[in-house]
């Protein structure tokens, strides 16, 4: 029986993978089912998820953009480490640095939502993910000054993401209504 977490990863992989590649994810799942060691099965499943992400990125530009965004979040995460250090020292440039970081959410979420308004909800949910992760992490670390700061960051990011996603989705839908669909050739 596949480990529950490994099974979840592979279910996610099957959702992400393009339809013609789903049998390959089933193949990964069948092998994962036979791996006795839990951590090894998890690694195997994580590999399946990575493969699915690679296939999806080649097929779907939106997914590729989402991956790029996750990379961007990774960069912000690194930056956040320096910001946390700055909080501890009370550095004066902090507000401007955080504000500029949060302001990035608005145009990015607007562009994503305008590009694929049918996925605006996904965009809206994904965008503040980084802020959530940082907040939960600081909660777990148990330093009140950090988690109150991160809660503020989360509130600000969510606000800008909401505005950006809503604006983008409205513009995207309006554009799609205004521009007629190209006829398909076959």
């Amino acid at each position: 029986m596949t480990d529950r977490l490994a099974d979840t990863l592979l279910r996610l992989a099957a959702r992400i993978a393009p339809s013609e590649r789903r049998p390959w994810i089933e193949a990964v799942r069948a092998e994962a089912d036979l791996i006795g060691d839990r951590s090894e099965a998890l690694r195997w499943a994580a590999g399946g998820l990575l493969a699915a992400m690679g296939w999806a990125a080649r097929k779907d530009l939106v997914f590729l953009a989402a991956l790029a965004f996750m990379g961007y979040c990774g960069l912000l995460w690194v930056q956040d480490i320096y910001l946390q250090a700055a909080v501890a020292k009370g550095a004066p440039f902090l507000d401007a640095a955080v504000a500029s970081q949060i302001w990035c959410y608005l145009p990015i979420s607007a562009l994503f939502a305008a590009w694929r308004p049918d996925r605006a909800v996904v965009v809206g949910a994904l965008m503040p993910l980084f802020a959530w992760i940082v907040f939960v992490r600081s909660l777990l670390m148990g330093i009140p000054s950090q988690w109150s700061f991160d809660l503020w960051c989360l509130y600000e990011s969510t606000k800008y993401v909401f505005v950006g996603t809503a604006l983008g989705a409205v513009v995207g839908w309006a554009l799609r209504r205004a521009v007629p669909k190209r006829p398909t050739t076959d």
């Binding site: 390959w24 193949a27 990964v28 092998e31 036979l34 791996i35 690694r43 195997w44 499943a45 994580a46 590999g47 399946g48 998820l49 990575l50 493969a51 690679g54 296939w55």
Partner: peptide
């Protein structure tokens, strides 16, 4: 099977299946 090929090549599933 995939596991057998992985054992021979040392490749992880993320590289092997693509």
């Amino acid at each position: 099977y995939g596991l057998e090929i992985a054992a021979v090549t040392g490749l992880k599933s993320g590289s092997l299946y693509p």
